[in-house]
């Protein structure tokens, strides 16, 4: 967690958050599917101040060949933050260690739900580009990518969503923005397969008691209903 010297007060006197949200309130989320011409499927999301673009190519030829699996498709996943995506420094191009880890855990989420067996010896390429970042970009990336995959007609068991919960002092909060992410006492991004209730992504750092963990997860599952609805509507809008 960042510079603790000038740690700002994250809750206002009226108990709301700095951006006026309630503790369990999502930032405004809008998703639009089918936004790019060349890709087999794509989606663009604005989630608070985050702007995320996801695109899918394939099933296509596997490059490099050694990744080929004769029994199923392989998902190749790229999560990357644009060099101009954050207010602070100009980012370096190319994937850094953080981006490599996020690409890996994102791929693992979609390995669960995509019916890989239907496309042996092929690759499904998933790109997630963060154009503007304000905290919670991995969750936004997964939520957007799920819509892009559906838009590409890739058969899936479920439409996954992701959002994070966190903690400010003894309060559990939903959907952390950048300043909350930097200064909160815990951050826990989770991806859920809503049909089964299975957790497909679970990361956490900071400090949480068992009870706080349970409350955080409940808050995420409740918010997931809204997120799922917005994802489905984005897909319906394409075909209406």
């Amino acid at each position: 967690m960042a510079n603790m010297l000038n740690k700002p007060e994250l809750l206002r006197g009226d108990g709301k958050r700095l951006d006026g949200r309630d503790l369990d309130e999502l930032r405004p989320l809008s998703i639009k599917a089918n936004v790019l011409k060349n890709a087999a499927g794509s989606a663009y999301a604005e989630w608070g101040n985050n702007k995320v673009l996801a695109a899918v190519y394939g099933p296509k030829e596997v490059v490099p060949r050694h990744l080929l699996n004769p029994e199923r498709a392989v998902i190749k996943c790229r999560y990357a933050m644009a060099p101009f995506s954050s207010l602070s420094d100009h980012g370096r191009s190319g994937p850094n260690r953080r981006a490599i880890e996020i690409s890996k855990v994102t791929k693992e989420v979609f390995d669960n739900v995509v019916l890989l067996d239907e496309f042996p010896e092929t690759a499904i390429e998933l790109s997630i580009e963060i154009l503007q970042s304000d905290g919670g970009t991995r969750a936004a990336g997964i939520t957007t990518a799920a819509v892009a995959l559906a838009n590409a007609g890739i058969p899936m068991k479920d439409l996954v969503y992701s959002v994070s919960a966190g903690k400010i002092k003894d309060k559990i909060i939903l959907d952390l923005n950048m300043i909350e992410d930097n200064y909160s006492d815990a951050d826990m991004p989770v991806a859920v397969s809503p049909r089964t209730g299975n957790m497909l992504l679970l990361q956490m750092d900071g400090e949480l008691t068992r009870q706080e963990f349970n409350l955080g997860l409940e808050t995420i599952l409740e918010a997931g209903k809204q997120i799922s609805k917005i994802q489905r509507q984005a897909l319906i809008d394409v075909y209406e």
Partner: peptide, 23 residues
Amino acid sequence: DFIRAMQKGLSGGFTQKEIQDMI
């Protein structure tokens, strides 16, 4: 007193109950 870090890996999922038991 506290959970300090968690990381799930691979494509399988866990239920809420399973995670609580592991904690």
